[in-house]
Amino acid sequence: MKVKILLLLVFLFPFQIFCQSKNTIDPIRFQIKNAGINVDGTISDWEYEISFDPKNLIDSKIKATANPQSIETGIKLRDKHLQGRQYFNVEKFPEIRISSKRFTSKGKGRFVGIFELQVKDVKKEITIPFAMIKSGKNQRFSAEFTINRLDYGIGESSLVLGDEVKILINFEK
């Protein structure tokens, strides 16, 4: 029996390593299609101020900033280009800002937030469905939403690069 368990562990161990993609631990990830292939990226430098009480949504607040200079897509020169003026223009706009306006509950730890998202000098109101799971004193937030990069002046229309960027948020506070 012990041997079987050991064998099972030996088998599972590399499988778990394989499954543990870098993405699961990055709080801000994004995906965009480039020539039909998903390009994954992260923004690792970010800060938040959260006061979220599911029982008091009216007074709840979520506010965060992300530093586009910390973008990583696996190709350094591409990252540098994304930081340039034709994309995030980090010299002029060092922060991406998001700030909640109001929330509604969708039941069982699910919510919808209306946020103001500012990328570069463009502010837009967006709707983000998200989940919040409480674990002890901590709250784990997860969300997935899509924006059109052209709405925010991120690059230009392209034959190969998609307009839509999927953003995946996952963190615990």
């Binding site: 480039n34 390009v39 897509t73 034959l159």
Partner: peptide, 12 residues
């Protein structure tokens, strides 16, 4: 070619 991001500059 696509994965390496070549398409960004060398766009079909």
């Amino acid at each position: 070619f696509a994965e390496q991001g070549c398409v960004t500059c060398h766009t079909p």
